[in-house]
Nucleic acid binder design. Structure first.
Length: 466
RNA sequence: GGCCCCGUCGUCUAGCGGUUUAGGACGCCAGGUUCUCAUCCUGGAGAUCACGGGUUCGAAUCCCGUCGGGGUCACCA
């Protein structure tokens, strides 16, 4: 049974777009193999915990349509799925390690720790804990009984090669001399990430650990833990990390990173996910636009490249535009209505406007800019119309007489006026366009005027710039 | 700095020893359609496959080195 997971930490405003990427891959991989996808909340850092973050992460994931088979919300047989509720479990396993001499208590002060590391840095050797407490465990235990704060450390043996096979990168080898005696249980009694992730992945029967590249260097620590327990290893696969344009790790200082931001901008969930699918992976037939089913069908970890791709919002916008063009008009109407709930848009007008703007916007947030004039009279005009009053008046007079108010008819009438007045079409229609919408760039004019209705158009033509 | 990962057009990528004058997509430029914009169509610029050595009849593709980029070195995940 294939079981994958993502393990977000509620330490930010929302789920990071890079985590959404990891989530999509994990989810798709589980789907492909008739497996299960689990969301586990890793809330062991009490100092960085952000109120409401867990809920936000879960709801954003849901908004993107990535539904876990097991999680704090839907439950499952391997719960609890929140690490802060699993403390006794970690404690038990830590004790097991201690009894097997694979781990030990440490009561060194932070001052001593930094001093030791500083000293090692000066000597140009890998700064790490010097195992001082390991050699005096009886003494340490007595101190602990008296109430001194302590941590539990993994006892890593020296000069040993840890080798693992990464499904994306092949064999990766690291010597334990580069590894610190990792803290397993912190002084507040909470496990560290390394402890919790291994215990939980084991207990939750995670078969494939698919996570970002930044975890490669801690994977040996995890493997050592699995070995200390005598547990079978999961398969590891480290995905490339998404980059800023300057190639550094995608960060909020240089890029919008919260997954919900993209939704707020009017990107469609499926378009974002489709774009993300193309990060480091490509369709065997080089297709760029494909839905979940096709991705699930074609995705393989072996095809993932190990290079860190730059997240290109421009291409995302193009892709979103592609999705918008393909979306059903009735569905699109609802999307727009939902996106602009605060404006209480007239549903009928939205519906009529859709064929006009569908090929013109790349995200929902552009709708108001291009179609707002259908709902409100323009207050500003991008071109001065004071010299055009006579022309606008004659157009208004002419249109007043039109009986069948259709785009074609409106267009014909206006063309006739333009010819009578000997005004070139380009200039003529731009003047009307500005009078009607206030803008130089608009959806097709005749159709827009049809939507606005005769009376409104005539009033706008007469009232423009007056 | 140590360790680890990576290196094909500006960006996302195809390529897995010969079919490649290195293909596609985004973006960019030009033209066409058009009352604006967009869509659509056509064309174009853009990568000596980081560099240097090998291996081979033959290398973007395999090996080594150099350089460059990134990640990681916490009682954070």
């Amino acid at each position: 049974m294939i079981r994958t997971r993502i393990a977000p930490s509620p330490t930010g405003d929302d789920i990071h777009i890079g985590n959404l990427y990891t989530a999509y891959i994990n989810w798709a991989f589980a789907q492909k193999n008739d497996g299960k996808f689990i969301v586990r909340i890793e809330d062991t850092d009490r100092t960085r915990l952000v109120e409401g973050a867990e809920q936000k992460i879960l709801s954003t994931l849901n908004a993107y349509g990535i539904k876990p088979d097991e999680s704090v919300e839907v439950g499952g047989e391997f719960g609890p799925y929140r690490q802060s509720e699993r403390l006794p479990i970690y404690k038990k396993y830590a004790e097991e390690l201690i009894s097997k001499n694979k781990a030990y208590f440490c009561i060194c002060s932070r001052e001593r720790l930094t001093n030791v590391r500083e000293e090692m840095k000066v000597q140009k050797i890998v700064p790490k804990y010097d195992k001082y407490c390991l050699g005096r465990q009886d003494e340490v235990k007595k101190e602990i009984e008296k109430g001194i704060e302590y941590v539990v450390r993994l006892n890593i043996s020296e000069n040993t090669e840890v080798v693992f096979d990464d499904l994306i990168r092949g064999e990766i080898k690291i010597n334990t001399d580069n590894l610190d005696d990792q803290v397993l249980i912190k002084s507040d009694g909470f496990p560290t990430y390394h402890m919790a992730v291994v215990v939980d992945d084991y207990l939750m029967k995670i078969s494939h650990v698919i996570r970002a590249e930044e975890w490669i260097s801690s994977t040996p620590k995890h493997i050592l833990l699995y070995q200390a327990f005598g547990w079978e290893l999961p398969v590891f696969a480290h995905l490339p990390i998404l980059r800023n344009p300057d190639k550094s790790k995608l960060s909020k200082r240089k890029n919008p990173v919260w997954a919900s931001w993209y939704l707020e901008q009017g990107f469609l969930p499926k378009a974002v996910l489709n774009y993300l699918a193309l990060m480091g992976w490509s369709h065997p037939e080089e297709k760029e636009i494909f839905d979940h089913d096709e991705f699930i069908k074609e995705f393989t970890l072996e095809r993932v490249r190990a290079v860190g791709p730059v997240f290109d919002v421009k291409k995302l916008e193009w892709m979103n535009g592609q999705y918008i063009m393909k979306i059903q008009n009735s569905k699109f109407k609802i999307q727009i209505l939902n996106f602009y709930t605060d404006k209480h848009l007239d549903e009928k007008i939205v519906e009529q406007s859709i064929p006009l703007i569908k090929e013109r916007i790349k995200k929902l947030s552009e709708y108001w800019n291009i179609a707002g004039f259908l709902f409100e009279r323009p207050e500003n005009f991008e071109k001065d119309l004071s010299e055009q009053k006579e022309l606008l008046t004659s157009v208004a007079v002419r249109l007043k007489k039109v009986e069948s108010w259709t785009a074609d008819q409106i267009g014909e009438e206006m063309q006739e006026v333009a010819q009578e007045k000997e005004v070139p079409f380009g200039k003529f229609f731009m003047t009307i366009r500005i009078a009607i919408s206030g803008k130089k760039i608009t959806p097709p004019l005749n159709e827009s005027m049809e939507i606005l209705g005769k009376e409104e158009c005539v009033e706008r033509l007469l009232g423009a710039n007056s």
